[in-house]
């Protein structure tokens, strides 16, 4: 039952009105920003892969062409990885009907599952035999620590995470850390797509450190770094 003291006073309204009159507000709707992000991120990933692969191996998407027994397998895995990145992105960015984002359990699922699913697709049964890890095969020395891949995954992941942060800036009033983690996992997944298409290595250590680890790190980075930017 409402009582007189449960109503805000007139002077409080005046204070709020005055503060709002002096406060600028963005006019670009979040939905527009999300659509732009969904268009830019795949284009960015493709561009980085083509440039990097051409620079290092002299051909676009070396990971899909060098030391590949079955081109069909390569395209299938690539399609699955793109599907993983795209689906995690869509769910992490989605405002849902209430405007408060998807359920916390779903966000946790995205953050927790992207890494193991990516590892299952690329590490359990590597596409490459490991022949390209011999410098004589491609003329390119591939580090067992995957430094080039870490660099490429970082470029793509960091850019993607920044794009996501801009898309959802001030749009996440609840579960900011979980949302950030889901966005980080999605950004990491795009980095994972990039290194899969770029890199012909089949070495287990290289795959784990250079391909899988960056996704895990971006998941954590998203949870830590995005919370404040996402809050209204």
């Amino acid at each position: 039952m409402a009582t007189p003291s449960d109503r805000p006073s007139d002077w409080l309204y005046a204070r709020i009105r005055s503060a709002i009159a002096n406060t600028p507000a963005a006019t670009t709707r979040t939905r527009t920003r999300i659509l732009v992000a969904l268009a830019v991120v795949p284009a960015l990933t493709t561009t980085v892969v083509f440039i990097a692969s051409d620079w290092v191996y002299g051909q676009p998407a070396a990971g899909l062409g060098i030391d590949v027994a079955s081109p069909g397998s390569a395209m299938t895995i690539l399609a699955l990885l793109v599907g993983l990145a795209l689906s995690s992105t869509l769910f992490a960015l989605w405002q849902a009907r209430g405007g408060l984002g998807i359920a916390a359990t779903s966000l946790i699922s995205i953050a927790a599952l992207v890494v193991p699913v990516y590892a299952a697709l690329t590490v359990l049964q590597p596409l490459h035999s490991g022949a390209a890890d011999d410098v004589a095969f491609t003329g390119v020395a591939i580090s067992p620590w995957g430094w080039r891949c870490i660099f490429i995954a970082t470029i793509v992941g960091a850019s993607t995470l920044a794009i996501f942060a801009v898309a959802l800036r001030r749009a996440v009033p609840v579960a900011g850390a979980l949302r950030g983690a889901a966005l980080g996992a999605a950004a990491g997944a795009w980095g994972g797509v990039a290194v899969f298409a770029f890199c012909p290595s089949g070495d287990l250590q290289h795959l784990l450190v250079g391909h899988v680890l960056p996704i895990a790190l971006f998941t954590v980075l998203g949870a830590v770094a995005l919370t404040r930017a996402l809050q209204p």
Binding site: I20, T23, A25, R31, G98, L100, R170
Partner: peptide
């Protein structure tokens, strides 16, 4: 809290999802 909520609501108004409560 009430004042700051309205201020944030104003600043974040473009993020309002159509149809949300």
């Amino acid at each position: 809290c009430f004042q700051e909520t309205f201020l944030k609501l104003h600043r974040a108004r473009a993020t309002y999802a159509t149809g949300a409560n």
